[in-house]
Simulated scan of single mutants.
Amino acid sequence: MIVDFSQFDRLCENTGRCGIGACRSGASVGAEIKLEGLMVAEPDWEAVGKAIRDRMVQLGLLQEELARRSNIAPATIREIEYNTVQRRRGKRTLRALSAALEWHEDHLEAIRNREAPPARETLGQAARNAAAGAATAIEETLRELLGRVAEIERMLADLHRSQFGE
C-alpha cells in the first residue's frame, strides 16, 4: 500500500517533518520508506515540477502568466517547478496551479502522490453535469411543492365541507 508521506509527519521520530526534504533518518525526497508495515511514498515534487514545465510549454505560458492565472507568487511557482525548496504545499496551491494549467483541479496532487491524474471534464461535460444536477434539484423541489399544494387543497376542501356542509 502506497500512502502520501506527508500524512505521517507526526510519526517521524527524528524530525517530525519527513516529506520535507531529507531528514536525519536518511530519507530523501522521492524515497519510499517502510513505516510500521506500510510502504510510504514521499511526495514526488520533481514530477510535479516537470509536469508544470511541460504544460507551460504546451500552453505557451510564462511563469508570470501562470502566477497571474493561479494567484500564486512567481517565487512559489519557481520553487515547485524546479524543486528548489522542500516544504509542504497546501492543496489550494496545487489546485490553483492545476486549474490555471487547464487541468482537473486534482491533477498536480495526483502527480505529487504518484497516482494517475484524473481526466479533466470538457466544458460541455461540466455544463451538462451541472445542468443535470440542477434539473434533478428542480424536479425534487417541484415534487415537494406539488405535495404541499395537494395538502392545502385537501385542507381547503375539508374547511369548505365543515363551513358549508357540502
Rank of each mutant, 00 (worst) to 15 (best):
L35A: 03
V3D: 13
D4T: 00
A110Q: 03
V57P: 06
W45M: 09
E36S: 08
L61Y: 01
A75L: 12
A31R: 08
C18E: 03
P118S: 06
N113S: 14
I33A: 03
R148D: 08
I111R: 04
G60R: 01
A116D: 15
D158C: 07
C18D: 03
F5H: 11
R128Q: 12
R112K: 13
E65M: 08
A127T: 08
A47V: 02
D158E: 15
S70P: 10
A126I: 01
M56S: 02
G21H: 05
S28T: 12
R161D: 15
A99Y: 05
A135I: 07
N129M: 04
Y82K: 08
D106C: 03
N83D: 11
Q7L: 11
S6Q: 13
Q58D: 14
L38E: 10
M56I: 00
H107G: 07
P118K: 02
I80E: 01
Q63W: 06
A119V: 07
D158V: 05
G49F: 03
R53Y: 12
L11E: 11
V48I: 01
C23P: 02
Q58T: 05
A47N: 09
N113I: 04
N71Y: 05
G90F: 09
A116T: 12
R120S: 08
R143I: 00
L61R: 02
N71F: 07
R120A: 09
R114D: 07
A150I: 04
L66A: 02
I77E: 00
T141D: 15
S98Q: 02
L101D: 00
I52Y: 01
V85T: 11
E105H: 04
I72E: 01
T136A: 13
R95Y: 09
T141K: 14
R24D: 12
T93V: 13
A131W: 14
S98V: 03
I138F: 04
R112C: 07
A127S: 13
R68D: 10
E81R: 10
G30D: 03
E46A: 14
L101E: 02
R148K: 08
E144W: 01
D44R: 04
P74G: 07
Q58K: 04
E105G: 04
S6F: 11
T136M: 15
V29Q: 12
M1R: 12
I77K: 01
S162N: 15
R95T: 10
L108Q: 02
L62C: 15
A67K: 05
L145T: 00
I33C: 07
A67N: 03
V29M: 11
V48L: 00
T84G: 13
P117F: 02
E36Y: 05
I80K: 05
L11K: 11
G124F: 08
Q58S: 13
F164Y: 15
T93S: 14
G21T: 04
A150K: 11
A27H: 03
Y82E: 05
L123H: 05
Q7E: 15
